[in-house]
Amino acid sequence: MRSGLTILLLILLTGHASAQTDSSAATTQDSAVTTIRSADTLIRYRINGAYLGSIWQDLKYTVARPAHWEKRDYIRLGVVGGVAGILLAGDYGVKQFFVHHQSNFMTSVTDQIEPFGNAYSPYLVAGMYVAGVITHDRKLEHGSLMAAKSLIISTVIYATIKSVIRRGRPTYYDSPFSFEPPLTNDKQHTSFPSGHSLTVMTVATAMAELYGKDHPWVPWVAYGIAGLTGATRLYENRHWSSDVWIGMALGHFVTKSIFRHQRELEHKKAMKLLAVSL
Rank of each mutant, 00 (worst) to 15 (best):
residue 203 V to L: 06
residue 8 L to S: 03
residue 28 T to N: 15
residue 236 E to S: 03
residue 151 L to C: 08
residue 115 P to F: 08
residue 82 G to L: 11
residue 157 I to L: 13
residue 164 V to N: 14
residue 83 V to P: 01
residue 216 P to S: 10
residue 145 L to S: 10
residue 177 F to T: 08
residue 115 P to K: 09
residue 153 I to Q: 12
residue 41 T to E: 14
residue 98 F to C: 05
residue 219 P to M: 04
residue 4 G to V: 11
residue 209 E to M: 09
residue 97 F to S: 01
residue 55 I to W: 13
residue 240 W to T: 02
residue 157 I to W: 06
residue 96 Q to P: 00
residue 270 A to N: 04
residue 239 H to C: 00
residue 71 K to R: 15
residue 135 T to S: 15
residue 131 A to W: 09
residue 109 V to E: 06
residue 257 S to F: 02
residue 176 P to S: 07
residue 140 L to H: 00
residue 246 I to M: 06
residue 229 T to I: 02
residue 236 E to Y: 03
residue 263 R to Y: 00
residue 170 P to C: 14
residue 183 L to P: 00
residue 13 L to F: 12
residue 1 M to Y: 02
residue 173 Y to S: 00
residue 52 L to P: 05
residue 7 I to T: 11
residue 146 M to T: 08
residue 244 V to R: 11
residue 116 F to V: 08
residue 95 K to F: 13
residue 248 M to H: 02
residue 238 R to D: 12
residue 114 E to M: 01
residue 269 K to A: 10
residue 117 G to P: 06
residue 276 V to Q: 14
residue 207 M to Q: 09
residue 159 A to T: 03
residue 56 W to H: 01
residue 35 T to R: 11
residue 249 A to W: 05
residue 264 E to P: 06
residue 47 I to R: 14
residue 223 Y to H: 10
residue 75 I to R: 07
residue 207 M to D: 04
residue 195 G to P: 00
residue 143 G to L: 12
residue 223 Y to C: 06
residue 100 H to I: 00
residue 21 T to V: 12
residue 146 M to S: 05
residue 35 T to Y: 15
residue 200 V to C: 08
residue 63 V to I: 15
